[in-house]
Design a protein around this nucleic acid. Sequence first.
DNA 1: CACAGATCATCTGTCTTCAGATGATTGGCG
DNA 2: CGCCAATCATCTGAAGACAGATGATCTGTG
Lengths: 153, 153
Amino acid sequence: MPPKTANREAGYFATLAAERSDIALCRASTVVARAAEARANESGIGVGQHLVLKMLAEVGPSSQRILSDQLRIDRSVMVGICDGLEQAGHVRRERDAGDRRAYAVTITDSGRRLLARAEDAVPEFLDDTFADLTPAEREQLSALLAKVLRLRP
Amino acid sequence: MPPKTANREAGYFATLAAERSDIALCRASTVVARAAEARANESGIGVGQHLVLKMLAEVGPSSQRILSDQLRIDRSVMVGICDGLEQAGHVRRERDAGDRRAYAVTITDSGRRLLARAEDAVPEFLDDTFADLTPAEREQLSALLAKVLRLRP
DNA sequence: CACAGATCATCTGTCTTCAGATGATTGGCG
DNA sequence: CGCCAATCATCTGAAGACAGATGATCTGTG
């Protein structure tokens, strides 16, 4: 347990993080997000683009609305993500025949190849960013975050 | 355990969050950050301003550099935070006599009163945002985040 | 003392995120 | 059928975060 009388300045953040989990969560998020973006860029892709390709590969063609909702990416941002993927040829944007307001965003073979490369880098990335956690602790963290996000009851 | 064959679209995020703790962490952060900012605003303050007042009250007058480092707030952003606090009279910015490059940012009585009000709202806020976690789980989360942040070994 | 490099606060421009408005299209309801 | 509210993708403008440059000041070295 840290001393009751807080250190006068150095290490104040540790005290704060212990007391305010919300702050700890936000600060952890920014370092993790930075690292994730850097890793994704090494594969020549953004994190958002990676997630879009991943979802398209797993659930099939989807509208930008569904992608936005399920990936928790703002619809305005999704426009730019899909623009990039489409220009690079990793995705096709066809109008959905049944609902011509919506696109049917579809992953291409090029997209699948890029996705495969990006996915290869994920395990090592997770291992690095959660290096100080045992496998059991990583499971715990995952479960706790799911509760904070109010996912499955 | 969720079905191996992922749901075709609904609930895809739960699958993703289970697989990518980094994404779960980031998404949890944005919802928590939003809630924190909203709560702080109800006390007529920003989260950053709240943290600055809190640190000043606990460790005494500090330079903006030290505040930035310990609160993990960019030095450029700290300028605006201190501007706001100073204009509202919650903080004084005197040049440090010993090092005239640096300010000695000092909390005022007005600042202490505002801080007290803002602090009053914190326990309820934490209770709300981590409502689905037991006290033991909140401790776990705090400890795990400390490890992700590589705080104390 | 004089000078070089580091440090503090600040400013500037860029990038990301997001709320709200817009145009096209849909579905429901009379 | 014809209208109206809702929905999809997009655009626009505002706000925040941040990298890099700047001016003032400090520290250390000769």
